[in-house]
Amino acid sequence: MIFKEKLSIYLQIAERISDEILAGTYAPGGRVPSVREYAVMIEVNLNTVMRSYDTLQSWGILDMKRGLGYFVADDAIQTILARRREAFMSSGAAEFFETARTLGITPDELAEMYKKYLSD
């Protein structure tokens, strides 16, 4: 049985800001919009966005400077990639391997496919 589960809104926003950091919208060491600016931009409750920022802070992706606002941590990109890699290994990859097994794809075939994918 397969379960689908969407992330809670505050986590969706945390992932969205992480994507924006990876894409260079907000650079390491740079300031991110205030909680209110971000809430208005995406039409979401202020307290919900506050939870997203708190979460990003607890993950070490944002730093709060009292009176100045929130800034992207210097090593935010590495932190985001490490988190994503961990998440991929524990869920995304597991699902992928399950499909490969069901379809009878051998490890050698998989390795070959991946090499071909990277060279394209």
Binding site: F3, K4, E5, K6, I9, Y10, N45
Partner: peptide, 14 residues
């Protein structure tokens, strides 16, 4: 909403 997030999970099953 925060309390509801903590207490309940909403999933879809195939």
């Amino acid at each position: 909403v925060a309390e509801t997030d903590c207490r309940l999970s909403f999933v879809e099953s195939d």
